[in-house]
């Protein structure tokens, strides 16, 4: 189990995380949701070792990820960043193979097991037909899948994703999230995923953590966490919540009433 314990973090003087505690079990997808600036991405940056924390720990099997050198940490936790500014002249296979860096020497020569891990990651993300394509020639959805494949090639028990569906259309959203959900079961990975879309989060995550102002406001099954009251409080905007046949919540924005359509009296 991934155990985030009392994590605090700051940019300069400005503290943005105030003691965040969360658990993610193996085989479970936990979605992190909350308004812009709530600290979701900061949490991900700290957990992945990019931003040094001010206090707290991230434990896996009793060891603190944040106290490890990058090489050791990269064998436990893999990150799927947002697809931005990828180097265009690498092939998909070359890029996915870089997921093996934590197991390779400075020279980077791939061994038998490395090749097998790369092939498995490519196959699980349906990228084998695109393996020799250049990154610059991929669509946004394909680039996102390549980044997922690269993280899978790291063969880690923990997977961290930063808004994996931004800029993707419906089909690619379903494709990526379905894949993450399936792989979390197949590979028994603890998945922590920052999500903007509450409906997608409640559809694809096992549990949901609602985040506001650097704190976890509530965490649990999406159906329990996403009440109209909680969402309104956290996001500061009124919503209606509809229940699906299976009790799954569907969030609907309530627009402010428009000023009366009649022309004003003179």
């Amino acid at each position: 189990m991934l155990q985030i314990r009392g994590l605090t973090a700051a940019y300069g003087e400005h503290e943005v995380l105030h003691g965040v505690t969360l658990d993610v079990a193996r085989g479970e997808v936990l979605a992190l949701a909350g308004p812009n600036g709530a600290g979701k991405s900061t949490l991900l940056r700290v957990v992945s070792g990019t931003l040094p924390p001010r206090g707290g720990a991230v434990l896996w099997a009793g060891r603190d990820l944040l106290k490890m050198p990058p090489r050791e940490r990269a064998r436990l936790a893999a990150v799927v960043p947002q697809a931005r500014r990828l180097p265009p002249m690498f092939t998909v296979r070359q890029a996915v193979a870089l997921g093996r860096t934590a197991y390779l020497s400075w020279l980077g020569a791939l061994g038998e097991s490395d090749r097998a891990a790369v092939a498995r990651a490519l196959a699980q993300t349906d990228l084998l037909p695109l393996a020799d394509r250049l990154l610059g020639h991929l669509s946004g959805g394909e680039q996102q899948r390549m980044l997922l494949a690269r993280a899978l090639a790291q063969e880690t028990p923990v997977l961290l994703l930063d808004e994996p569906t931004t800029h993707l259309d419906l089909r690619h959203q379903a494709n990526i999230l379905g894949l993450v959900r399936r792989l979390s079961r197949e590979r028994r990975m603890a998945v922590l995923m920052v999500m903007h879309d509450l409906n997608l989060a409640s559809r694809f995550a096992d549990r949901l953590a609602l985040f506001a102002e650097g704190r976890v406001v509530s965490v649990g099954e999406p159906a329990k966490v996403l009440t109209a009251e909680a969402v309104r409080r956290v996001y500061g905007t009124p919503v209606e919540i509809w229940r699906n046949g299976d009790g799954r919540p569907l969030i609907d924005l309530v627009p402010e009433p428009l000023p009366s359509a009649r022309p004003p009296h003179r």
């Binding site: 992945s48 070792g49 990019t50 050198p69 990058p70 090489r71 940490r73 990269a74 064998r75 893999a78 990150v79 960043p81 500014r85 990828l86 180097p87 690498f90 070359q94 890029a95 870089l98 997921g99 860096t101 934590a102 197991y103 390779l104 400075w106 020279l107 980077g108 690269r150 790291q154």
Partner: peptide, 20 residues
Amino acid sequence: GHPLNVLQFGEEQAQQLGLH
């Protein structure tokens, strides 16, 4: 060559891939 390849994805990602 290999570390330079990893660095093409930026310092953050390089670090997350296990490169110091």
